[in-house]
Nucleic acid binder design. Structure first.
Lengths: 227, 227
DNA sequence: TTTTTCAGTGAACAGTTGTTGACAATCGAA
DNA sequence: TTCGATTGTCAACAACTGTTCACTGAAAAA
């Protein structure tokens, strides 16, 4: 497991009981503090691309030179974030797989589960959505890889569920790509929506549900021979 | 017309015959140089958010203090870029309107025209696609406004063309939103594709065509009463 | 025990950043 | 022609950036 524990995301580096940890864990801890610092800065409206090394270490509560003990670059930290976000995406897929296909109102339920998942993994989705087309070229292509992989897994899942038995593998993948892009964009909507406005949230949810329903409707009627 | 002429996009500021211009045009000219400098930097892989004031003036061939004669902020320059990009989007819509609905293989032709338009307005699409979910909050929301407006106009156009006569205005807008998001993401693909690879370009085009076809297929079968 | 490894520190560097104020040149109106 | 307005320049500023080096202290290895 590569994921971090991150029990207290905002504390610089555990100022409490800390000296009693073995060296490896101590290192891991400030490494996490650096990563969390970057995420925290993004949570305040900054884009990863514009984060400075010193800025990150300041929030992490560490001296700037320490950064180099863990990453050679801010870009390298970014790549770690891509990897983490990839894990988050796959965890989502795994949970969806475990839950199985709900028979009644499947799409609406999926959208609701997705929304909850986005909100409880806010920082990763913020990062992915933000840097997917904006960030530095190397990070952008890393994210693209991760998303492509995600689409592949989703394609395989839908294939085994046999929801669209008439679709060729290529067409099924095309459908999944459409859904993933739509929902990844929806994540931006979800994260930007001011909390508390129940009515607006409902409108937004309906919108997302309708879009996915329309895609699925199209997918059910798709004929490969005609394309 | 707010659009700039930009005959020689890379030259700092016309080092040639220039002194003989009236003051207003001279001002406009360095203003354009600043805007073009920002676009040029983005064309080299940078994100707008990370551009510095001095960096922009350096490329524009102007002293840093001159910047303040035109914009109070880099953010203000960004907002001008949003406006320009909005004009570009509407120009696209206007041309599509003028061309009318091609009867044969309408979607494929539209995708091809779109691709050509993206490539010949590379910088604006680069900016919009990049800052739509990545950039600073104020620019992001400005872009959202522009795109929303674009979706509205497209909805109105499709309404008058009566391609989907059974759809309610709300559903038609939902379809347009889906198409616009899909094609705006497609712009990233198009711009990232290394030029020259004919086979890959064909694959990409087919992919985009299929996605839009699937959406339209779903839209034709959509029943409002069931949703 | 002694020795080695290594995460974190502190001071210093050259370079860059955004912003200021005073100044020069010149266009356009009086 | 005179004069105010305005565009661009120059010099300077404090603050900040990424990166280096030598150093400390403690955990791990011998």
């Amino acid at each position: 497991m590569t994921a971090r524990s991150r029990s207290a995301p905002e504390s610089p580096v555990g100022a409490d009981e800390d000296e009693l940890l073995p060296r490896g864990q101590r290192k891991q801890r400030t490494r996490d503090a650096l990563i969390d610092a970057a995420l925290q800065l993004m949570n305040e409206g900054r884009s990863f691309n514009s984060l400075g090394l010193r800025e990150i270490t300041r929030v992490a509560g560490v001296v700037p030179t320490s950064f180099y003990r863990h990453f050679k670059d801010t870009n390298e930290l970014g790549l770690v974030l891509v990897e983490e976000s990839g894990l988050t995406l796959r965890r989502m897929l795994r949970e969806a797989r475990r839950a199985g296909a709900p028979v009644k109102d499947m799409i609406r339920r999926s959208v609701q589960v997705y929304k909850a998942f986005v909100l409880s993994n806010r920082l990763h989705f913020l990062f992915v959505a933000g840097e997917r087309s904006g960030g530095s070229p190397v990070i952008r292509s890393a994210i693209r890889n991760e998303v492509d992989q995600f689409i592949d897994e989703m394609t395989s899942d839908l294939r085994h569920l046999a929801i669209f038995p008439k679709l060729s593998p290529e067409s099924l993948r095309m459908v999944c790509e459409l859904v993933v892009n739509t929902m990844l964009h929806a994540a931006t909507d979800i994260l930007d929506l001011p909390p508390g406005d129940q009515a607006l949230a409902k409108l937004q949810e309906d919108n997302h549900v309708h879009q996915v329903r329309l895609i699925f409707l199209g997918a059910q009627l798709w004929r490969d021979e005609a394309n």
